[in-house]
Design a protein around this nucleic acid. Structure first.
Lengths: 343, 343
DNA sequence: TTGAAAGCGCTAACAT
DNA sequence: ATGTTAGCGCTTTCAA
């Protein structure tokens, strides 16, 4: 048993072991070009025997082809993004392309850094969350000469393609449903995140529709950090202490909504007659709660799939497509916490 | 405004624009070697002006240095792994190294593929979850000539270094605490995942300690797929319908434990006097539940940090270290669902 | 079906 | 402080 060589094995080593040229070995390992069955077998055996792992860096440089798709998202803790990712992975699986994930923590500067870093590996495409980016980031993406798909949001001007939902519309539809059910004294509970543009747009759509009906948000409460479930409880307690007359609570995400729901249940609140609740996202995780929280599905999986499909299509047929715009329609789930008609 | 060139910009373009050699431009952009302040400024201006994004593929090939660390984990949906990742990212942030994530879905074959794919990019190190891998995967890692840190688990023989907790010990300690509290008719609820070796080891440690006290698991129930919270409710209902006499339920993770807790609370069970519950992981997410579930912290964040620190140290000082073994000690949290002494 | 030569864009090593 | 040369490990292209 020889000690493992310090130098990683090269194609040349495999070729020598198999008694063929580097070129032939290369053809076998990539499955391109005509190679006789006999040589193919010899090369494959040799590669396996020595434990050859190809050097994609060299391959990519020589061919200027990189089977990587950069995926840039704000966070992995959010539960929403792993689901988007899973949609991307599944769709990309059959195409020879591979997702590579970068996380921005909702910081524009970090997004810029991550994009720069990823583009320097010359990926075949970029999927990036949101339509808001620094000028430099937009310029980088526009100049990269590869497909760019902005996801999650369609309220704005994409650099190239985009796939998502309209968060303004989502906010409007939720407001309409709440008004239709007869609720009027509405509290809003959200995250203290000026850079979460999608939450902001939902809020804008929400308040605008209320305003048209002559209704204003009665009170609001924001949090940052910590366990979302716990924060939801706490915020709910706080806002109701201040405004016990509220008859509806709209949460910017399901997790804090679930916390609020648990709090209200423990207080014996009459839901949804006395007070209604709604969140946003449609997280499956919460299916086991005592009551089903009203929410709106963000189409996470499908967003991932369609974004990946756009990249894959353009990869297969370069100089085709461009500027695709896909707006998905989220569906309102009333659950048990939003009544369907006035009392 | 000229149309963006189809060909990405090269270092040569920047060098020409700045009126220096490629080599000088390279030195400026990497911040290595002596360059006069004047030329440095000219090069940086030129690079910014044309929007140059370096080609790391070429750089890596020329220098045989890649600032990437492969991180291979079973899943992103688990909540545990994003936390490990966050520990890794934070620790790597100051080192110039960058994590690249691969997901295996708990499948050995997929793990092998993912490792092969990642190793072909010649990363500076590998962090991989678990100690169980296919023969081929172990061989690949051993031959790669880079630091390899296996994480989450210390019950076994690492290829190189490892950082984690002993899941057998975790199972034993939980069993000891349950016995000490006087519970005797114990049910186990877990995932139908033969390939989740850590859950298996916890179960082994758990049953062994029970056996030493002459206690056997009274009943068990397994699930797969679906919302963990909901499954936890359902399994709990099922197992208690079969064995209403159970006085303790041990869940293989906190999420199903939380489901069980919600179910029991809705049934008005007396917890922890009538029946006790415990999970595993110490997920912060669940802090807002009506009662705090007994659990055992899996040291996720710290595992990520220490693993990254090992890679970083060896990257800074090659041919140093090797074979590090770090066993972290999880702490038992009694919460509100596991009493501390017999009734 | 196979091989030889050239070069991808950058950096190490050695000039100057 | 700056430039020149060679070459990283592979693939493209062309020739046999």
């Amino acid at each position: 048993m020889a000690a493992p060589p310090r130098r990683p094995l090269t194609l040349r080593d495999v070729a020598e072991a198999a008694g063929v040229s580097e070129m032939t070995a290369s053809r076998v390992l990539r499955g391109k070009g005509d190679v006789s069955e006999a040589t193919r077998a010899r090369v494959l055996d040799a590669a396996r025997a020595v434990g050859y792992v190809p050097n994609k860096i060299a391959g990519a440089l020589a061919s200027s082809r990189v089977n990587l798709v950069a995926v840039v998202i704000p966070s992995l803790g959010n539960l929403v993004f792993p689901e988007v990712l899973s949609g991307i992975s599944r769709t990309l699986a059959d195409t020879g392309l591979q997702p590579v994930v970068g996380v921005t923590d909702y910081l524009p500067e970090k997004e810029e850094q991550v994009l720069f870093e990823m583009l320097s590996w010359r990926p075949s495409g970029v999927i990036v969350a949101g339509l808001e980016h620094s000028e430099a980031a937009r310029a980088m993406l526009a100049r990269a000469g590869i497909p760019v798909v902005e996801i999650m949001d369609t309220d704005g001007e994409p650099i190239d393609a985009c796939v998502g939902i309209s968060h303004r519309r989502a906010g409007r539809e939720m407001a309409a449903a709440i008004l239709a059910a007869g609720y009027r004294r509405i509290g809003f509970l959200g995250t203290k995140m000026p850079l979460d543009h999608r939450a902001r747009k939902r809020f804008e759509g929400f308040t605008r529709t209320l305003a048209k009906a002559g209704v204003e948000i009665s009170d609001r409460e924001f949090y940052s950090g910590g366990s979302a479930l716990l924060k939801g409880r706490e915020m709910t307690e706080v806002i109701l202490a201040r405004r016990p007359d509220l008859d509806f609570l709209y949460y910017s995400n399901d997790m804090i909504g679930a916390g609020g729901l648990l709090h209200l249940l423990s207080k014996g609140a009459r839901i949804p007659e006395g007070i209604g609740l709604a969140g946003f996202n449609g997280i499956e995780l919460l299916d086991g709660l005592p009551m089903q929280l009203a929410t709106m599905d963000a189409c996470r999986r499908e967003i991932g799939e369609q974004a990946a499909a756009i990249i894959a299509a353009r990869h297969a047929a370069p100089d085709t497509g461009g500027g695709e715009r896909v707006e998905l329609m989220p569906t309102l789930q009333y659950g048990d916490t939003l009544r369907r008609r006035p009392l």
